[in-house]
Design a protein around this nucleic acid. Structure first.
Lengths: 199, 199
DNA sequence: CACATTCTTGACATCGTGTCAAATATCTTC
DNA sequence: GAAGATATTTGACACGATGTCAAGAATGTG
């Protein structure tokens, strides 16, 4: 056995940074190889393909991000939790310089409609998975908030609504790059959801 | 002068169909040339670049789409109008087989963060422009509805909220491909916006 | 009828993905 | 400690995409 000359995790981090900034299609393995100080062929040998490398790098990101969201949603009133949730969401979209946007949303919109076009079903599953987990997280918090009398709507419907808004925020971030606007929309959404009349 | 051997508008339509289905990065000028029965070089001669061709094709789409939305928002109660608005939005995302998603949202997420990466600022402007126009359209309807007593919130904030939801729907469409889910979210959004307590 | 102008066509340079075989370096076993 | 097995590295190759360019082709005009 010959040992690797590069660190597996280092490459994943370097690669995901590029994917995040430029999208999967917009990032070449040559870029990553240069940044990581590794030969292109070695990346193919270690990961198989650009998409496989992306998937590994993305899973890493998704795990970290989900944990951070969990933490943001873990204390205070429901309103405080939702505020922290949107805060982290927007901060994530606006991280980096220039801001990198949302990698999940970008990945989802990069998917090809048919076979062989763009990212494949494995990537779609990974993206959809993170979205589903976040939705469940929000829904659990809404259910708990309902028990405490902080919310009196349908937790499932409201969670889906909130996740839809976060996806929309990711898109508007790309369109206008106006962070204040995003925060206004988030605040308005919280008001709408929490002030809803009893149904 | 030698006359063109192809129809300018035909090519725009054929090209946009491909861009819509596979994204700008995922569509090659060879694909379009083959589909249109035109030599690749002729496309460069006539349009200059893939991006320039896309921009022309997109403007065509944007004009048509905005008109259709205007029509959907032109009659009945505010609730009926918003329902027709979301209906058309979702129908547009789900058109084609397989469904093609939202070209504007896809385009926005395909943008590069820095120079030279992905679509450039001209494309961003075109996308942002359509989003802004749709927002204004919705806001006008909300303002008119407020005068008729069908709505008692802030038209600008509500319009921004609604447009954010439509962008989110475009993303969820790619993630889950579940049209019934999209329609539920849309209905819930209309309820939230119209049932809002007086503020 | 010839000319100028535009379009078309094919060749080329460059870059990206992905494959492969040969070379290389370590771990293991004797 | 030496030899071989095994995995990694490296460079060459095929292929397809973008974009440029010069040469050929076809039409309107003088």
């Amino acid at each position: 056995m010959r040992p690797r000359e590069f660190d597996h995790d280092d490459v994943l981090r370097i690669a995901f940074d590029q994917f995040w900034r430029k999208g999967v299609r917009g990032t070449s393995l040559s870029d990553i190889a240069r940044d990581a100080g590794v030969q292109r062929g070695s990346l193919y040998n270690a990961f198989g393909s650009k998409e496989a490398l992306f998937l590994q790098a993305y899973e890493r990101y998704a795990g970290d991000y989900l944990l951070a969201l969990q933490k943001a949603l873990s204390a205070g009133s429901l309103r405080k939790r939702l505020t922290a949730f949107f805060d982290l969401t927007i901060t994530n979209f606006r991280s980096g310089s220039p801001p990198r946007g949302c990698p999940t949303t970008r990945g989802l919109m990069e998917l090809g409609a048919a076979e062989g076009e763009g990212l494949d079903d494995e990537a779609r599953t990974a993206f959809a998975n993170l979205v589903s987990r976040i939705t469940a997280l929000v829904q659990d918090n809404l259910s708990a908030g309902a028990k405490r009398g902080e919310f009196n709507g349908n937790p499932a419907a409201a969670a889906l609504h909130i996740i839809t808004v976060t996806r929309g925020l990711a898109v508007l971030e790309r369109a206008f790059g106006d962070e204040a606007q995003l925060r206004k929309i988030a605040a308005h959404t919280i008001d709408l959801v929490l002030d809803k009349k009893a149904g």
